[in-house]
Design a protein around this nucleic acid. Sequence first.
DNA 1: GCCAACGTTGGC
DNA 2: GCCAACGTTGGC
Length: 153
Amino acid sequence: MAYWLMKSEPDEASIDDLARAPRRTLAWTGVRNYQARNFMRDAMQPGDGVLFYHSSCAEPGIAGLARVAGNLQPDATQFDPASPYFDPKSTREQPRWLQIDVTLERKTRLLPLAEMRAAVELATMQVLRRGNRLSITPVTPAEWQAVLARLDR
DNA sequence: GCCAACGTTGGC
DNA sequence: GCCAACGTTGGC
């Protein structure tokens, strides 16, 4: 089993939105970066652990634990001209972008970005790398365990 | 709102 | 294939 960190802007999809969703599951749409898409396509498996991260907000940080539920398919928003994620270069025959379902495991205390940066045992996390902009990044088992240990404090 | 960092685009 | 210009991300 693998682990991931997935960024979401709480204005669009927050941990509470996920908690309120039917079966506590949301389709992860709007990924428009090839590297992140390829993680969904090639590496993410149902059951994988997910650190749900709030970005571009007042209090960025990890807000909960989730799980990859599967159901990989073309991202519906790329075909919708009304959507900010509309991609005119994408076709139903050859879709560019994918979505995958994510299910909430549990909401946690917020683990703020500042605390993550200050934590020696989390220093290797990709999301903390300077200039990192990937919305999906792999998390090592050691990092996962370290985050869990810290969340339960 | 600012700005550094990065990805993508498109001319050549 | 190079690379400058541009757009986006995301913390502050």
